[in-house]
Computed example of a mutant assay.
Amino acid sequence: MTNILIVGDGAIGLLLSHFLSHKNNVHVLTRKPTCNTRFYSRKNAPSHNINARFINLSDLAQQPSYDVVIFTVKAFQVQDAFSQIKPYLAANSILVVSHNGMGNIEELISQLNTQQALYFLTTSMAGFKSTQYIVQHTGEGQSVIGGCNKLAAKNPQFISPLLQAIPNLKMVNNIEQLRFEKLLVNVAINPLTALHNIKNGQLRAPAFSATIMSLLYEGCRVANAKGLNIALADALNNAYTVMALTAENYSSMQQDIANNRPTEIMAICGYISEQGKRYNIKTPANNELLAKIQAKKSVV
């Protein structure tokens, strides 16, 4: 049985803990009270207990060595979370990062030893927390994982058997390309739904088409400058497909704004803006949304 630590009990953290706890020993690191039971609910079906143990940071020293540590916190929280977990990692622990946006992978790689593999997991599973202890699984989706450092890229077989309980999990060699493709979907959906307080499907209205086109045009130019082959037509198709599949869902950024929480805007539009400066590419549409979201909510 694999010992797995999931860092963060947001929607994705709880969904992963539900699936992985069927055949693994799963602990979930949370800042909330650990005595409260967490529940999983699939659409309108009755909810049931998530068979994982919830722990606080002070409990880590008494826990077993973890084979796999999965970070499901937001992009701007990854480094702090890693710093807190690092003293408790085994010499050969496998790390997995999963969040919206880009950034922080290179920083993590520099802090790992040569026996610690680092992977990135991107997923289109849809879910939200109806309360702080209940996750609603509202839509199917594919989860894709790929190696980020040399050890993980050289030995992809390490991780697949350990996480096989995750539905529709696929191992790939080009995770950087897929991460950027997912970033562009987030660029098209998250800031606009947060700014206008609307569901994902409402972005298909003609009023948003010009803005979405501009956002993705800038993103594709940055991707191409980085050596990634992403066509604007494909980026648009991906974004509008996700809008249709998650039409009744609110994006994570919309939920963050609605609940007065920090957002991942710096890892999404902020990343396009920063990389645009690096490659001398103008990104006015992303710059504008970045400023509007920052003005709407003070973000990290």
Rank of each mutant, 00 (worst) to 15 (best):
A11I: 14
A165D: 15
T114F: 08
V7Y: 04
N51P: 00
L183S: 03
M253H: 08
G10W: 06
A117V: 11
V96E: 09
T34E: 10
N3D: 15
I175C: 05
T34M: 07
S273V: 14
F39Q: 11
A210C: 03
I109M: 08
S251F: 13
S252R: 09
L228S: 02
A239D: 00
P161T: 02
L121S: 09
L169G: 06
G201Q: 11
V96A: 14
G270I: 02
R204L: 12
K32A: 10
R204G: 00
M243S: 05
S273F: 13
K182T: 05
T37P: 12
D80M: 12
N280H: 15
T211G: 04
L228M: 13
N104H: 14
I159P: 01
S298L: 15
A91N: 15
S65T: 15
N3V: 12
S251C: 12
N186A: 07
I55G: 04
L15Y: 02
E274G: 00
L5N: 06
T2F: 05
E181P: 01
N186C: 06
V300W: 06
T138R: 04
Q177P: 00
H99N: 10
I268T: 01
S160Q: 15
L60G: 03
P33I: 03
V28M: 13
L169I: 10
Q132C: 06
K182N: 01
M125K: 05
N56D: 07
L20H: 13
N173I: 08
L60M: 07
N168M: 10
V222M: 08
L216A: 03
L232W: 03
A295V: 05
E264G: 05
K226C: 08
K32I: 02
L169W: 06
E218L: 07
N92I: 01
M1N: 05
K199I: 01
P161Q: 07
A239P: 03
A244H: 11
Y240L: 08
C148W: 06
L195G: 01
G13S: 11
P262Y: 13
I189G: 02
G139A: 14
Y279C: 02
K150L: 15
T72D: 07
K32E: 15
V185T: 04
A117S: 15
G8V: 11
V172T: 13
S21K: 10
Y217S: 13
M171L: 15
R53G: 01
H27R: 08
A188N: 00
K43I: 10
K277D: 04
I230S: 03
A81M: 13
R42C: 09
N44P: 02
E248P: 06
P262N: 09
T241D: 10
E107S: 14
I230E: 01
N197H: 14
L228H: 04
N237T: 02
S251A: 09
T211K: 07
V135W: 07
V222T: 00
I145K: 13
R261P: 01
I105D: 02
Q116A: 05
F208K: 03
E107F: 12
Q63D: 04
G101F: 04
A194V: 07
Q142T: 11
